[in-house]
Amino acid sequence: MSGLVKEAGYVHGAAVIQDPTGLHARPAVKLTKSAKRHGAEVEVRAGEAGNWVNAKSPNAVMKLKAGHGEELQFRARGEDAEAAVAQMVALVERDFQE
């Protein structure tokens, strides 16, 4: 479990994708829906080299095309930012099972 780190106003967190096919359509939808449950601004990227994108945008999340074993990084700020990142990380860690 990667701990939540606070820096520059953001709460950070990360988790590794376990699904052998990577972040395919269905998990991407779940990720987006989970982000949307929070008032915080939530962003996600695939690994250090990736660009931060809006985790609430289904199109942006689907285009991440993150593969198996890649680390999804999250950052959030604003109202309930910690809860948002914690839930996103937990969702990836349990391989997107409801």
Binding site: A25, V29, R37, K56, P58, N59
Partner: peptide, 24 residues
């Protein structure tokens, strides 16, 4: 349809739902 519904699920307004579907 999947994109629009995903956007709609978060309670987004109609314009945002349409924009998300078309953004695909």
């Amino acid at each position: 349809a999947v994109m629009a519904a995903t956007e709609a699920a978060g309670g987004a307004p109609l314009e945002a739902v349409k924009a998300t579907a078309e953004e695909f």
